[in-house]
């Protein structure tokens, strides 16, 4: 298995890729990472650089083919699974961390403490609405905490505001959209918002003050807090 960290978890929010690797090691999953992992091409595709994206993706195919590719990022998931197939006809074997870890929990390879913590969950657009994956993350949360849902969830989920190149081009707009989503999350009984996309986390986190006692975590970071280590 190849763990494709994705740009955000590799360069900006390394706590997410660290969490994933810790969980993989605890579950005794054999995996490797690529020393020179390069962007999957999603950012280029969404912002209109089609030819550059094509070149980037073409170069990536070499080391992605014939691997089971584990991704942290919802954007990588959609791009590797859908765009590579539509543009090059290659059907890459891609699995999102939430899907893999749900399976590992079922197989008892990952054990979690059960808490009464109330958490809410944000569906990343690229994972949910675009790729129809809503349940894995929720099933994991229900194994170890109490899931309290927001008003807009699953296919009706509201965007975090970061996608489509908006965060870099219009940072205030991105923040404004994130604030609406956080307001929705805060109106649940929970003070913790989980998501399964590092880019969503980055943007949601950027739009609240650092000392805010509302927590925003990637699902894998949350798993770490609930993980029963094998030496426990």
């Amino acid at each position: 298995m190849l763990y494709f960290k994705g740009c955000i978890a590799k360069e900006k929010l390394t706590s997410i890729s660290d969490a994933v690797e810790t969980i993989l090691q605890e579950a005794d999953v054999k995996y490797k990472t690529h020393n020179h992992e390069r962007c999957c091409g999603s950012v280029l595709l969404r912002t209109g650089f089609y030819d550059d994206a094509k070149e980037q993706m073409q170069n990536n195919i070499e080391y992605l083919e014939n691997e089971t590719i584990l991704v942290s990022c919802a954007g990588c998931y959609k791009t590797l699974k859908k765009d590579y197939s539509e543009m090059f006809g290659v059907n890459l074997d891609v699995i999102h961390t939430s899907q893999l870890f749900e399976g590992l929990i079922k197989e008892n390879k990952i054990k979690l403490h059960n808490s009464n913590l109330k958490v809410t969950y944000h569906d990343p657009c690229h994972l949910g609405r675009h790729m129809d994956e809503y349940d894995s993350a929720r099933n994991i949360i229900c194994e170890c905490a109490k899931l309290v849902e927001m008003k807009h969830i699953r296919e009706n989920s509201n965007c975090c505001g970061s996608g489509g190149g908006v965060k870099s081009a219009f940072p205030e707009l991105s923040k404004n959209i994130a604030n609406r989503r956080i307001k929705e999350a805060k109106s649940t009984e929970s003070n913790m918002l989980l998501t399964s996309c590092p880019f969503c986390k980055l943007n949601l986190k950027d739009s609240i003050p650092e000392d805010d006692d509302f927590h925003i975590l990637d699902l894998t970071e949350f798993i770490i807090t609930q993980l029963k280590y094998s030496d426990e």
């Binding site: 740009c7 360069e11 390069r38 962007c39 912002t47 209109g48 190149g165 870099s168």
Partner: peptide, 29 residues
């Protein structure tokens, strides 16, 4: 439409920087 607009008119400056970073460094940063 963004594909054509990038070609015929200028892309967004921050997007262009990100594209150049991806091409030279492999990531947007």
């Amino acid at each position: 439409i963004r594909i054509n607009v990038n070609k015929l008119w200028n892309p967004i400056e921050s997007h262009k920087k990100i594209k150049d970073n991806i091409k030279s460094k492999g990531n947007p940063f």
